Computed example of a mutant assay.
Amino acid sequence: MGCALSGSGVVQDPTASEEKRCSLAEDGPDSGEEGQRQGDGKAPEALLLSEAQKALVQLSWEILHKDIARVGVIVFIRLFETHPECKDAFFLFRDIDDLQQLKMSRELQAHGLRVMSFIEKSVARLEQEEKLEQLAFELGRSHFRYKAPPKYYEYVGTQFIQAVQPILKEEWTPEVEKAWETLFRYLVATMRRGFYKEEKASGVNLSLSLRRAGADKTPNKI
């Protein structure tokens, strides 16, 4: 997530890039069960973006903003290709197996735009960390009500980063990727806190019930 963005023409090693993308999902606090359950008890995550990284995110977003509807659809199509279980959180199109048909879904397009709107608001609040934290925290709380578990949040960030690389082309550099990774790590951690805060307040262990529901499913037979 030469270059007006970084001033660097460094060509990225595809292998290293893949390793970094994997680490975005695997190295987060959601990697272990205890990390999930402690999400509410941890101190708020710090936004570890330097001023230079904030500028990289803002400049790259100016380019991406011109095509956010398409980016939103690409992100979710990629998400369902790589993690089909995520479709269970979307009752409007969970039963659509044809990805080409899904691309034309107005519901998917609308949801993609909502997610892009959240990213846009996050970018606009990079200099207002309190407001950014509140935005992500409240979104995490609402995702408890949507029954969308925290492990899915990381997947969206990973797919966003992969989807925007071909759009930004030479403007995408290792520095830009690192900045977006850092932002998404913060957003995911803050949303996770909001999810578990709402779960605790409700007295319902939704995380456990969702895992049990997934374990009870039998694979579709052809």
Rank of each mutant, 00 (worst) to 15 (best):
L208D: 12
H65S: 10
A189L: 01
P44G: 02
D216G: 15
E33D: 14
Q58R: 12
W172D: 07
K42P: 06
K42E: 09
E85V: 08
D95H: 07
S209R: 08
E26C: 10
T190F: 08
V115N: 05
G32Q: 03
L56H: 11
I96F: 02
R185I: 14
V10G: 07
S117T: 09
T82W: 09
R37V: 07
R145A: 00
D97L: 12
V75A: 07
K20Y: 02
I96S: 00
V176G: 00
A55C: 05
M116T: 08
E133W: 10
L24T: 03
E199Q: 03
H143V: 00
T82L: 11
C86G: 03
G72Y: 01
M116W: 11
S142G: 14
Y146D: 00
W61R: 09
E81L: 04
I77Y: 04
P29C: 01
F90R: 00
F160Y: 15
L183K: 03
P150N: 01
D88E: 14
G203K: 03
F80L: 02
A189I: 03
L48H: 08
A189P: 05
L48G: 02
L5K: 06
E138A: 06
Q12V: 13
R21S: 08
K42S: 04
Y186R: 01
Q12R: 12
K217Y: 07
D95T: 05
L92Y: 15
L113M: 11
T190V: 08
I119Y: 06
R141A: 03
W180N: 04
M116G: 03
G157F: 04
F91D: 06
L135E: 04
Y186K: 01
G157Y: 01
T82S: 13
G39N: 01
Y152T: 12
L168R: 03
A52Y: 13
E171A: 12
G9Q: 08
A189W: 05
S23A: 04
S6Q: 10
K169N: 13
Y153R: 00
G214D: 10
E34W: 06
P166C: 08
F90W: 01
L48D: 04
N220Y: 15
A69R: 12
F118P: 15
Q38L: 14
F144A: 00
N205H: 09
A163D: 09
T15W: 08
V188A: 02
R125G: 08
L59E: 15
